[in-house]
Simulated scan of single mutants.
Amino acid sequence: MKQYTTLNLTEQGTVANVNLQWPDSGILNETLLSDFIGLMDYLEDESPCTLIVFQGLSTPQQQTRTAPPVLDHCSKWEKFLQRIERFAGASIACIDGLCAHFHFQLALACDYRVATTRSVFQAPAVKEGFIPGMSVFRLAKYTGLGVARRLLFTGTPCSAKKAAKLGIVDRKCKAKNFEKAIMESQQALMPIHPEVLLNTRRLLNESFASTFEDAIGHFLAAQNLCIACQDCPAK
């Protein structure tokens, strides 16, 4: 298994726990990106895990990005997020504090978000003079266009309570109950049938742009594939 510099990976059965060692959420660099690419290579090709749990998606205080992002880094980052979204399994983002910049972008790419009541979400990139990645695409699918515009244009902090109302957070809890809430969220997603989850996620994403006539054809094709895979061994 690859040795990582900016994250710790532990596996428990079919659960991959990824603890990020990434205190500055406004910075991407080659070391981070190499670790993320290596992580997905391993999880896709070698690991039996069908659930990825990301922890460490928060910082102790507000940070301001002082340098523009490197375009090549942005491209590699978005390819990593796409791999999370196309993973044959589920993903959970766990937030306990300020979730901003690239931490927030990763949280939006996950299937499920658990946050403590002291958590705050913020996308300050536009106010700093940069586009906040493909949050411009993902955020509106949770909140609607008007709310996404307001959050991105103003960089306004969003509490966990409000984020839950907007659909950004799936489960909120007190900080003392964080680990319990994470475990219960894992159980809520079990059992995971990778092919079914992968196709359901894809159909949901396509529902924003597909006509009903196209969508039902895609559904029937995916359903046929899932039924055919019922007797296939798990990943």
Rank of each mutant, 00 (worst) to 15 (best):
K174N: 14
T117Y: 07
L203N: 09
E179F: 06
S119W: 00
Q61R: 08
H101F: 04
L139K: 01
D45H: 12
T50C: 03
P194M: 11
V169T: 08
L166P: 04
G167M: 06
W77M: 14
L33S: 03
L220P: 06
T200N: 13
Q55M: 11
R113V: 15
M1Q: 11
D170V: 02
L203C: 07
N29L: 00
R138E: 06
S75W: 12
D72N: 15
E44R: 13
T143S: 05
T117D: 13
K161D: 12
K176L: 02
R83T: 07
F219Q: 15
R118C: 06
R149P: 00
K162N: 12
L139R: 11
A222T: 11
R138G: 02
V18K: 10
D170M: 07
I52K: 08
C74Q: 15
E195H: 13
G146Y: 12
K174E: 13
S91I: 04
S25E: 04
Q12R: 09
S91M: 04
A221K: 10
I216Q: 14
V126R: 10
L106T: 05
C49F: 00
A175N: 11
L51E: 09
M40W: 10
L7A: 09
V53M: 04
Q62A: 12
N205R: 14
K79Y: 07
E11A: 09
G129V: 06
C99N: 12
P68I: 04
C229R: 15
N19P: 00
G133C: 09
A209H: 09
H193D: 11
F130I: 10
A228K: 13
I92Y: 11
P124D: 01
Y42S: 14
F80R: 14
L57C: 05
F212H: 05
A164H: 09
P60Q: 07
A181H: 05
G38Q: 12
S119Q: 11
T156L: 10
L51G: 00
R149F: 04
A188N: 04
Q63T: 08
Y112T: 04
D231A: 09
K161Y: 12
E46F: 04
F178N: 06
P194K: 15
S185N: 05
T200Y: 07
A115L: 05
D170W: 06
C74K: 12
P68N: 08
M190Y: 10
L28K: 01
G89D: 01
G155S: 10
D72R: 15
Q12S: 11
D45S: 07
V169Q: 13
L81A: 01
